[in-house]
Design a protein around this nucleic acid. Sequence first.
DNA 1: GTCGTGGGTGAACGTCCGTGCACTCAATGT
DNA 2: ACATTGAGTGCACGGACGTTCACCCACGAC
Lengths: 216, 216
Amino acid sequence: MSETRPESRLERKERTRRAILDAALELCEDSSLVALSLRQVAGRVGIVPTGFYRHFESIESLGMTLVDESFASLRAMLRDVRRMDRDFSGSFAVIVDRSVEILVEHVARQRAHFAFIARERTAGPPAVRDAIRHEIDLCERELATDLARIPGTDAWSGEDLRILSNLIVHAMVSTAESLIAAAGRPAMEEQIAATARTQLRMVIIGALQWRSRAGD
Amino acid sequence: MSETRPESRLERKERTRRAILDAALELCEDSSLVALSLRQVAGRVGIVPTGFYRHFESIESLGMTLVDESFASLRAMLRDVRRMDRDFSGSFAVIVDRSVEILVEHVARQRAHFAFIARERTAGPPAVRDAIRHEIDLCERELATDLARIPGTDAWSGEDLRILSNLIVHAMVSTAESLIAAAGRPAMEEQIAATARTQLRMVIIGALQWRSRAGD
DNA sequence: GTCGTGGGTGAACGTCCGTGCACTCAATGT
DNA sequence: ACATTGAGTGCACGGACGTTCACCCACGAC
C-alpha cells in the first residue's frame, strides 16, 4: 500500500495553488486570459468559486503570476543556450544549430508556457501585456550583451547590436509560434527548425557584412 | 441648411452594418474578440441587442468580416509597395526606405485594422486565427514571387525564397506591432522605422551573400 | 392606394458571472 | 488539552450574457 504522508497545511495550500495555475494555463489555451472566468478555473480545480480568493485576488493577478512562471521557463532556456555558447564557442553555424535545437526542445516541453506568452503578449489584460513586453525587452538586451562577447563582432555599434537583437528575438518568437501551431507533428517541426536555422544564418551573415558596406 | 437626402432602405442598413463593424473594432481594441459581447456592440451602436442578428449571425462571423476588411487594407498597402517597386526599380536601399515609409503610413492610417490582425492572429476564435494565418501565408507567397522578379537574385532557390519571405514578413509584422504600441508618438515611430530599415538591409545583404557561402 | 418585406423593438427566459458573508473543521502553536 | 487560524464551503444577490418570440411601422414594389 502507498504510504501517504500526512501532508502539512502549507503543502496542501501550495498544491491547490499549483492546480489553479495549471488549470488556468490549460483553460485559456483556446481563448485568452480576458475571456477566462474565475468560476471556470475553480470548477476545473474542484473547489468552490469563492475558494479562489484564498490564493489570488483576481484573474489578472493570477495572469501576472503566470507571466513570471512562463519567463522563468524561458530564462532557463536562455541559460542553456548561453552555457552551450561558452562551452563550444565554435563557429556560428554550430552555435546556430544548437540554439535552434534548444528552442525546439524547450517549446516542446513547455508548450503551454510559450503559447501563453505568445497569446497574452498581444491579447492579455493591459498589465499583463506590459509585463510581457518588458520581459521581452530584457531578453533583447541580454542577447545584445551576449552578441557583443563573441569574437569577430567588434565593428557593431551599440545601436547595431540593439537592432540585431531585436530582429533575432522577434524571429525566434515567430519560430516559437509556428512550432506551437505545428502542435507536435514532427515533420512540420523539423521543417520549421530548418527554416529558423537558415534565417538565423542569413541574418548573421548580413549583420557581419553590415558595417563594411553601410551604404547601398 | 444641409439638404438631407431621404436615404434609402439599403443605405440605412449598410450604415448600421458599418456602425456595428466600427464599434466592434473599437471595443475589442483593449481585450479581444473572444471577450467581446454582442450586447456591448449593440449598446455602442445604439440598437437593441436582438437587432444585431439582422446583420451578423454571431460575434465570430462578424470577426471573419473584420478579417476580410483588415486584409483589404493590408493588400492595398502591398499594392502601393509593389507599384513603387516597379516605378523606381532602383537600388535595394531605395526600395527598403520607400517600403518602410509606406508601412509606417498605412499603420498610422489604419491603426485599428492592423491592431486587430496582430491581436486576433494569436488570440481570436480558432476560425479567425486560421483565416488570418492563411492570409499571412498568402502574403509570404506573394512576396516570394516579387523577390524572384528583382534582378540579382537568380541564385536563390524556391526554398530560399520561401524562407526569406517568411523572415521579412514576420519582421514587418513585428514592426507593425511596435508602431501600434508607439501609439502615435512621432519620435518613437521614427526610431522604429529606422530600426526596420536597418533590419531589412541586414537581411537582404545576408540573403544575397547566402548562396555564395552556404556553409559556415 | 394597398400590402408585404424587413430593420428595429421590448419583454422575458435561463445561464453564467463576480462577490459578500457566515460557516466548518482539521492542522497548528502554545 | 485548548484556542487559534485559515483553506475550503454553501448560499444568496444583482447584473450581464445569448437567444426566443411577438410585435411594430416605414419603405418600396405593385
